[in-house]
Design a protein around this nucleic acid. Structure first.
Lengths: 138, 138
DNA sequence: GTAACTGCAAAATATTTGCATCCTT
DNA sequence: AAGGATGCAAATATTTTGCAGTTAC
């Protein structure tokens, strides 16, 4: 695990520091997506709130994580898969938000269907978010 | 127009006041969705920021508008169509965010395709947001 | 007249920035 | 050694709450 974390950071051109290790570890050990406040809670006040902001920003810029749009103002972040690179995301999977347990999951095996847009519109990126009850809460 | 606005408010069980009239008028005269700050800007400092919050909240609760999820933390609001009622939205259309002009549009005629979720997952509501270039900016 | 809406002030939260210090490479 | 990351303090920005005055029904 330790080695894997360092490898991921290095291969994304991020220097290996305590804070980044810990936050990345959180993502790896968590099945779903994390919000900023999730991260603050789960790290037990170990480091500064500002560091969390900057770390997430750095991860985003390097393409290590992606954001998941939600209707309730709370941005969530999730790890990108191997086929993502900086600036060029390949996350065409569906996101699921459980209304019971509140967790946000990437349904990697569920791909977003292609749609026909009205004439003149060009799509660059498509997001699909499903709200409902997840497997565990059913 | 004036009459229409009052009718809409009344039929949604909202009392008719100056602020609500103005905000609803904004929505009606705007092709796309509006964010909180859009509304503040376009109303020319006429009324309090708090009133905007409370008005949007009231519109949301009565099912007059709905939120559009975005990946960048900025909630946008758009008018619901006739087939929406309080608490029970029928907005299964695709939303489009233009990266050029920044406007958010409801593609009412483009419906969200149904998808097959993994076993055990139950969908209650599905959101689909397309980022790209709109008809006017192409 | 009563209930609901509004504006103002203030509190509570969330996010950003600058800078000195410490850590990685 | 140099550049980047971190923590702290402080500046901004955003959202919520309480209350008194006003307005809609």
């Amino acid at each position: 695990m330790e080695a894997q974390i360092d490898t991921i950071l290095k291969s994304n051109h991020l220097s290996v520091t305590g804070g980044r290790r810990k936050i990345l570890e959180l993502f790896l050990s968590n099945p779903g997506a994390l919000s900023h406040s999730d991260i603050e809670k789960k790290t037990e006040e170990k480091f500064d709130r500002v560091t969390v902001y900057r770390t997430l920003q750095a991860f985003l810029e390097k393409g290590l994580i992606h954001t998941i749009p939600t209707a309730d103002n709370s941005i969530r972040y999730a790890l990108c898969k191997d086929n993502c690179s900086a600036g060029h995301h390949q996350d065409n999977h569906v996101h699921f938000i459980c209304s019971q347990c509140g967790s946000t999951l990437c349904l990697d095996e569920t791909t977003i269907p292609s749609i026909r847009l009205p004439k003149g519109f060009v799509a660059a990126r498509v997001e699909m978010v499903v709200n409902g009850v997840c497997k565990n809460c059913k």
